[in-house]
Simulated assay, not measured.
Amino acid sequence: MQPFTYEALPARVIFGAGTLARIGDEVRALGCKRALVLSTPEQRGMAEDLAARLGPLSAGIFAEATMHTPVEVTQRAMEALRALGADCTVAIGGGSTTGLGKAIALRTDLPQIAIPTTYAGSEATPILGETEGGKKTTQRTLKVLPEVILYDVDLTLSLPPGLSATSGMNAIAHSVEALYARDGNPITSAMAEQGIAALARALPRIMRDPTDREARSDALFGAWACGVCLGTVGMSLHHKLCHTLGGSFDLPHAQTHTVVLPHATAFNAPAAPDAMARIARALGAADAATGLFDLARGMDAPTALRDLGMPEHGLDRAADLATANPYWNPRPVERAAIRALLDDAWHGRRPGG
């Protein structure tokens, strides 16, 4: 056994069905009395139901969370927080809402509860990505890690199959990169493989029957496991590319991860054979990169950047941005190779095809 360092993240995790009924107790356990409920505009109804459940513990609702956590949206949320006298936040929804809760915590140190309704996994990480002026920056700090994560399988039953697929592929990306991370360790690697396997097993079943509760439970567990991996080790090329494409070209987050993942995996495959073997084993596939591509394609998930609205003329700029600042990756990051990777992803070519 090689020496390693593993740092567990200090968060309380509640997992099950019907767990939303415990939200009032969790707010009180944090010593809070006025929770600001956060959501996207599309999930306002869910936020209103949650606020009603909280009763006098609810300070109000801010339903303007949006993709990539724009700084200007966070500033409006901060104004609402102060005006309502809130002493904590409860974020219900996917990565956009979780990101807003984290952005508020960064600025206030107020406790936060995350209630995920997708498989993004960001609720399990001390990582925050924010956009300002068309650029996305990320930082890692325990200040943004939610104190409580409340997983309720019932809340995922209404997640449309298409969003389930891309959200799940987004989660798998966290574990893929964890398996070849520079600061990887056997604990995180075991969890990464388990997370990929749970999602790869569950997602096709969800596509066939969105009400399959066992599949929904497996997917939600897998998303948590993958999120923990993202939170405990560093990420590399795949996440750099997705942050560049999302922040600079306003591409949808989960869909971008879905498209880029097979190509980033193929790029790194020669430099990380052990990781590739574990990914392939978790997928039940002969090859990691093609297994990921075929999983996405089999669910009718997007496989080409051009279908997400990425302009072909933007590929050069994306390659420039993705290679502008040095960062660790198992295979050296060179502009020509990254430009070729992006071209494959733009056209939706099957890796190795």
Rank of each mutant, 00 (worst) to 15 (best):
T118E: 07
T118L: 11
Y119K: 11
Y119C: 07
Y119L: 15
Y119G: 05
Y119M: 07
A120M: 06
A120R: 06
G121K: 06
G121H: 12
S122L: 10
E123I: 07
E123G: 05
E123W: 05
E123N: 14
A124Q: 07
A124P: 06
T125Q: 13
P126Q: 04
P126A: 12
P126F: 05
I127W: 01
I127K: 06
I127M: 11
L128V: 08
L128E: 04
G129N: 02
E130A: 15
E130R: 15
E130I: 11
T131W: 04
E132T: 11
E132Y: 14
E132K: 15
E132P: 04
G133T: 09
G133N: 11
G134I: 09
G134K: 08
K135W: 15
K136T: 08
K136Y: 10
T137I: 10
T137G: 14
T138D: 03
T138S: 15
T138A: 15
Q139W: 12
Q139Y: 13
R140C: 13
R140Q: 12
T141C: 08
K143H: 14
V144Y: 00
V144K: 08
V144Q: 02
L145K: 01
P146T: 08
E147R: 15
E147W: 11
I149H: 05
I149P: 00
Y151N: 03
Y151G: 03
Y151P: 04
D152I: 03
D152G: 04
D152F: 08
V153D: 01
V153T: 02
D154E: 15
D154N: 12
D154F: 07
L155F: 10
L155H: 06
T156C: 04
L157V: 10
L157M: 14
L157D: 08
L157H: 10
L159V: 05
P160A: 07
P160V: 09
P160R: 12
P161F: 09
P161Q: 02
P161M: 07
P161V: 10
P161D: 09
G162T: 09
G162K: 08
G162I: 07
L163V: 14
S164A: 15
S164N: 13
S164G: 12
A165H: 09
A165P: 08
A165E: 07
A165K: 08
G168N: 13
G168L: 13
G168K: 09
M169C: 14
M169S: 13
M169Q: 11
M169V: 14
N170V: 13
A171S: 13
A173G: 15
A173I: 10
A173C: 15
A173Y: 01
H174Y: 12
S175V: 10
V176Y: 01
A178G: 02
L179S: 01
L179F: 02
Y180G: 01
Y180H: 05
A181S: 06
A181W: 00
A181D: 00
A181Y: 01
A181F: 07
R182S: 02
R182Q: 04
D183S: 03
D183W: 03
G184S: 07
G184H: 01
G184K: 00
N185M: 00
N185H: 03
N185Q: 04
N185T: 04
P186A: 00
P186M: 05
P186Y: 00
I187F: 06
T188D: 03
T188S: 12
S189R: 03
S189C: 06
S189G: 10
